[in-house]
Design a protein around this nucleic acid. Structure first.
Lengths: 360, 360
DNA sequence: CTGAAAGCGCTTACAG
DNA sequence: CTGAAAGCGCTTACAG
């Protein structure tokens, strides 16, 4: 007679999961239930704080103690399979080397931890190199949601959409979507211009980001509007578009220095570009801030140690990352999300800005 | 009579996974099998290229086409649960703002992609803030292995060990372990010193990393040995320990400038510190490279744009990250791994090094 | 107050 | 050459 497989916990196991190897320490719900003398469904409900569970205090205590004693850790895969949620959030950034994203990641990571989520950060660059692209990484239910801080091409957005994973744009709003969270770039830009105006500058240039970038557009608008408010004209030759990189900033500054009428101050839309701007001025023997004031969007530790120390606009980048995670974790996949993080924006005055030379 | 649940694909499904909602597009192996007219085990084996499967070419073709047609993506949780592998690798770094780690992450990410793994990067900082610490993030079978590039405290290593996840130290070897992959820091340091010696410097200082850091120790050793080889003495006052941060480098340089006999050159063990070193020299009106040559460990885009552009030692940081992932993916959890990535180490000469002033 | 059962979507040894 | 079955470790509606 073929005996039915013996009861709970004694069922046949595939070779690779051999029991009796306590070294591996694979403790399951069943092990806990067996030792605590209850059903595994009870253990599960204790762990998940099921409000519909009524249980005697001492039974609960016994279960909890057994979990502790065996060092039980729930299996993420089993739980994901059952609940169809991974408790992971993906974050796609353009480049790990850009310190702006480091701030966003930090905020996102901390908030994810608080909400019991894991954060899986990848760079567009890295993903592009890999074989399966987004599919391997973010498809297959690996993440519950995807935060997009990168510059995805149309084809890439297509691929992402095919994954059918809820997504949210961070720090940009492309393609007329209603799923984004951004900073108040216009306001920040306005403050930068106002700082320079207050110092007495009138010919203020703007090294803007790439023309295609949404952030660049918003910062440029903030700049032109603040110029108008101050009764100054933002002549087209005062605005140069450049990549958000040191090399981009350097080239833009060179161009600005070659202009017929030199500005006395420049507002750079990105701190990475500003590094290149300072370098270009150094090479051209233009003294900062005596002959040229420089202020840049985004404050970083680095700014304090550049030569000279860089005046910046501090934006709540960490809060942006945190907010994005929170929204992703709490909103439905199709809820419209259109948020602007405004809170602490301030000018951090350092050595790179001063009144213009009087003999100008 | 209670009819047995109808066959494959028609079993009762829990409410949340309602079929007939093609919008959600939850396509399973069963759906593919049904449409292709084969068993789902066949589909599985086709997907996984099971060598023990013999199948008619046209059947295989039909299966593949159906997968394509339905846009089937395997469910990661189900696969993980069944195979007890997550195909995820965790990477723990100290700080996203440190550009050195950006390079390591990039290399690791690319290699993970090539091997079909996902990379889950977290910072020690961020993890410490979160509620469940490592357990939530890396426990529960979420990752197959853990790459440790951070500075974990003893208590944290304890926690990590309790997770029973295979781990590998990256860029450091702490606690007499035989699971690490590092760079040839000694060799790189030697090259830095040799570069300065070749320029004619004899009083060469070293701003070393934190005394507790393994990398700092190896770089300092490379420095002292190269000094000896050149017949120079590495006097104790020439060596200052500092954090791997701009602030650390700045304080160390200030200390060096206050010394009775000033060095003519300094080898800084980290590019972040070097930023602070250049700043300190600027403040003190010490001309670089005329009055002080500066060379730093680790090449970054930033180095090219500092004032002045910084001479560096380029180390294979990306390859370090890639190697770590490869080892983690291919080695057994207890195999001894003690590797040194030596390959392309070279001096990148920029504007911060020159022969010493002759009137010195 | 607690237990038994079904099933999430896969993989794999085995049967035919 | 292909199919049927068992089971990975959970959760949850339901029964008692």
């Amino acid at each position: 007679m073929t005996s039915k497989p013996a009861q709970t916990g004694k069922r046949a196991v595939p070779e690779r999961t051999k029991r009796g190897t306590p070294a591996t320490g694979k403790v399951t719900l069943n092990d806990v239930a067996l030792l605590a003398g209850v059903d595994r469904s009870v253990v599960s409900r204790v762990i998940n704080d099921d409000p519909r569970l009524s249980i005697r205090p001492d039974t609960r205590k016994r279960v909890l103690e057994t979990i502790e004693k065996l060092g039980y850790r729930g299996n993420a895969a089993a739980r994901s399979l059952r609940t169809a949620r991974s408790h992971m959030i993906g974050l796609l950034i353009p480049d790990f080397a850009n310190p702006v994203y480091a701030e966003i990641i930090k905020g996102a990571e901390a908030e994810a931890g608080n909400l019991g989520y894991g954060l899986m950060t990848a760079s567009s660059e890295g993903v592009r190199q890999s074989v399966g692209h987004y599919v391997e990484l973010f498809g297959q239910g690996r993440v519950d949601g995807l935060l997009l801080a990168g510059e995805e091409s149309g084809r890439e957005m297509e691929q992402l959409r095919a994954l059918r994973v809820p997504w949210l744009q961070v720090n940009r709003r492309m393609g007329g979507t209603d799923r984004y969270v951004v900073l108040d770039d216009e306001h920040g830009s306005g403050l930068a211009v106002e700082h320079l105006v207050a110092l007495g500058h009138r010919r203020i240039a703007h090294i803007a980001g790439p023309e295609t970038a949404d952030t660049a557009r918003r910062r440029r608008m903030g700049y032109t509007e603040a110029m108008s408010r101050a009764g100054l004209t933002a002549d087209p030759w005062l605005i140069i578009h450049a990549d958000y990189t040191p090399a981009g900033g350097r080239a833009a500054m060179d161009e600005l220095l070659a202009a017929p009428q030199r500005p006395t101050a420049v507002y750079v839309s990105n701190v990475a570009s500003a590094v290149g701007v300072l370098h270009a001025l150094h090479i051209a023997h233009v003294a900062v801030p005596d002959d040229m004031s420089v202020i840049a969007m985004h404050d970083m530790v680095l700014a304090d140690h550049l030569v000279p120390a860089l005046t910046t606009v501090r934006m709540p980048l960490g809060e942006l990352g945190a907010r994005a995670v929170r929204l992703m974790a709490t909103c439905g996949p199709a809820d419209p999300i259109a948020q602007v993080v405004t809170d602490p924006v301030e000018i951090v005055v350092r050595a790179s800005t001063a009144p213009p030379c009087t003999d100008d």
